[in-house]
Design a binder for these strands. Structure first.
Lengths: 220, 220
DNA sequence: CCTACCGATCGGTAGG
DNA sequence: CCTACCGATCGGTAGG
């Protein structure tokens, strides 16, 4: 269920090298250290020296494997959005809207539970991205939201869902799932499958509204 | 409904000065500039020179009004949590759990819609806080969550609510409302009252679960 | 409220 | 992969 992805950094390396078999382990070590440190302290509060120290080298040595600190951030944020997009497509089926909703929500929640550092950076460090990467990430995010809007619109059209605003419903559901990254612990009393099912339930309930606002469909 | 609050910075000023009538306008100007810049770029990406420029003075001049950059952040984050706590108590009634839930959720949403910069900083810059302010803010946050847990537990005990996990329900509902700060626009097609009512509806629906997970009450 | 300035730290480069 | 070093920028202070 977890989508297969190739890190942007890894891709760059493969493009530069002829031997795609020789995988520069340092590169993924750096990514991993950046993931932890950016998530804990934030991008601007993390120095290249910090990242170097985390993998046992000095700061300047990192430049043998990348061109800038920014490159690490871009790699993390782009691959995270690509993962979420691929995860949606993987989980989506051609069944009933209600069932499709449960499946993509479960995947959304699983991804956020299993990749808390990635999504935390993804949600906090957008201002730290330089153009054009920032635009790219925002576009990927819009693409992700668009998939959700389509699914929920489908259910609205078929009569399976009943809500006054597709847009608000999408925001509410996505945000709800994002929160899992902040509290999920693998050794908690709820299993990941239980949590995913719980959130799938909650999302499903959200979409069967008894409208109390003035007009039944306000806008999109 | 919006709780009255006194900025920590203002309090400090009043404590230092004898003339509490002479309110140093610069102080709140600085707070306002920090609010905008920290929210847009992040704390570490904002310099004292940036804040000074926003109010028409040089960076060093700011130190006539405060002792450190950190002080601005602390003020913003502490008063934000105090506002949320006071907002909860103000909105809470002694009626039925379902009605109390609707009222505090509407207030939660209104606050996030009307103070997007404050809550954005509040949710992103916790790692930028130095001790002991960090502990203090986390305690206030726990206090806020605790109020929600109590309310939802009340509704569970009285049979008004039906959910497998109070804790998960609180996380889901709070996070849902926090998201409003990221998309609400005063000139949007939905009025703030409509939005608040929508989220109150969604929260109410979340709490009337038909349990699909194995055990009906998993934990707290 | 300003200019001048401090020590520290940053991202990144040179050169080996 | 390292040391040495670069120019830039930072938060904050001195002194007026």
């Amino acid at each position: 269920m977890t989508p297969v992805r190739v890190s942007v950094l890894e891709e760059r390396q493969n493009a530069d090298d002829n031997s795609s078999t020789m995988k520069d382990g340092r590169r993924s070590d750096i990514r991993e250290a950046g993931l932890t440190l950016f998530a804990e302290r934030g991008y601007h509060a993390t120095s290249m020296g910090d990242i170097g120290r985390a993998i046992g080298v000095k700061g300047p040595s990192l430049y043998n494997h990348l061109k800038s600190k920014q490159e690490i951030l871009i790699d993390i944020m782009v691959t995270t959005m690509q993962d979420l997009l691929a995860g949606f497509d993987n989980a989506d089926s051609n069944g009933e809207p209600a069932e499709r909703l449960r499946e993509v929500m479960a995947e959304h929640v699983r991804y956020h539970a299993l990749h808390p550092r990635d999504v935390r950076i993804g949600n906090r460090e957008i201002p730290s991205l330089e153009e054009p990467a920032r635009e790219l990430v925002l576009n990927l995010r819009n693409e992700y939201e668009g998939k959700w809007r389509e699914l929920i619109q489908d259910g609205l059209d078929s009569g399976d869902f009943s809500i006054p605003s597709v847009r608000v419903a999408v925001y509410a559901i996505l945000e709800m799932g994002i929160g899992v990254a902040q509290w999920y612990r693998p050794d908690g009393s709820l299993s990941l499958d239980q949590i995913a099912a719980l959130y799938a339930d909650m999302a499903a309930r959200l979409l069967s509204a008894k409208v109390t606002v003035a007009d039944s469909t306000i806008e999109n």
